[in-house]
Amino acid sequence: MGVVRFAIKMLVKDIKQSIFYLVSMIFSIAIVFNDFNLLFNEDFVDKSDKVAYYTFSGIALTVLLVSLLFIAFANLYFIYGKTKELAIAVISGRSVYSVGLILAIQNLLLGIVGIIIGLAIGFIMMPIVNNFAYGFLGGDASQGGLSPEGLTVTLSIIVVQLIDMIIIDMGYTYRREIIDLLKEQKNMYT
């Protein structure tokens, strides 16, 4: 069985974990997109008012960090749930690099779907978030729209995190012994 086919089969086998990981990505991407859309929208945040800009930038950074940590913990849960299958794949003759490639393919598939759906939900949420934010500050929400810089920053951050998750997951399988992989899933539930 090919690596891609095996990776997809493992995703479908553990559909609950895959859906949890995917939903956490979708939610985080939608939140981060709307956060940066407001930060880089000149109608909302006036960059000449340094105090307001830095205050909102601090809030945006906090939201970003919480969202990225949420994705990272979901990834960790995702990987811990797969340790038994990974150990069996190594025992059955797959190399550690092949197992790492399986995880990379799974993360890439879930990441692409998560980015597409997350941005779509972010676009759907954008008018609601803009109305709330502008209403909270007493501004005119009709001026607020899509900020190309916000979209670019969101995509850049999410792609960098996706690449980091792939590298971390590959490193996780490389550093673990087979017996540790077999014990890890049991320890996760106790």
Rank of each mutant, 00 (worst) to 15 (best):
V4P: 13
K186H: 14
K13F: 00
Q185W: 09
M126P: 03
T62K: 07
L146F: 08
L182C: 00
L64A: 06
L110V: 01
G81T: 01
V51D: 00
N131I: 07
S142V: 06
F136K: 15
A141E: 09
S98R: 00
R5P: 07
E149D: 15
I157R: 05
F20C: 11
L38D: 03
I102E: 10
V51K: 13
F73L: 12
M165C: 10
K13A: 10
Q185M: 14
N131A: 05
I26P: 07
V23E: 05
Q143S: 13
D169S: 12
L64V: 05
I105W: 03
D164I: 13
I116T: 04
M188T: 01
R175V: 02
V129G: 00
L110C: 01
F33Q: 06
V99C: 11
I158E: 10
E184K: 14
V51C: 00
N130D: 10
A74E: 02
N130Y: 02
D180W: 15
A89H: 04
L69K: 08
T62F: 13
T83Q: 04
P148T: 01
Q161Y: 06
D164S: 11
F20R: 13
S142W: 11
F136Y: 15
I19K: 03
L119M: 05
V129K: 03
D140F: 00
I102C: 08
I158K: 11
